[in-house]
């Protein structure tokens, strides 16, 4: 049987992987209005998703280089801040990912609840 520490380590690693998987979707969902990095961290945290700053800021750059976000320096506040907002390609991808996510959660709910809705449907066909 696995040792307690090994199990806890594995749990932590797999949780991180799960969270990493939803990071893009979560970030895109909050950038319909332009936000700067720290405001986005807070916005996500307020809604229950804590993301490390060291993870989120490079991700914003990556999403921008992939052509999903648009960014610009805003000098109107107390000091210059870089604001990020989703663009049309990003919005399209967000829609697709949202559908994918909802399908996945439906399937996983079924799997985790132990019911066999799909199997029963297949048999009735």
């Amino acid at each position: 049987m696995m040792k307690k520490e090994a199990l806890s380590e594995l749990h932590e690693k797999l949780t991180q992987e799960l969270r990493r998987g939803i990071l893009v979707l979560a970030t895109l969902s909050q950038l319909k209005e332009a936000k700067y990095g720290y405001a986005l961290i807070n916005s996500l945290a307020e809604r229950g998703l804590d993301i490390e700053q060291g993870t989120l800021y490079p991700l914003l750059r990556r999403l921008e280089s992939q052509g999903l976000l648009h960014s610009e320096w805003n000098v109107e506040g107390s000091r210059p801040r870089r604001y990020y907002a989703i663009n049309s390609d990003g919005s399209r991808l967000l829609e697709l990912l949202t559908v994918e996510w909802r399908d996945l959660t439906t399937v996983l709910d079924v799997l985790l609840d132990g019911t066999t809705t799909r199997g029963e449907n297949n048999e009735s066909n």
């Binding site: 700067y36 990095g37 720290y38 405001a39 807070n42 700053q53 800021y57 750059r61 320096w73 000091r79 210059p80 801040r81 870089r82």
Partner: peptide, 16 residues
């Protein structure tokens, strides 16, 4: 560019 953004993010966090 990254340095300027990093500085602004750090100051944001401190102020908050």
């Amino acid at each position: 560019d990254i340095q300027a953004e990093l500085r602004s993010l750090l100051i944001d966090a401190l102020e908050d």
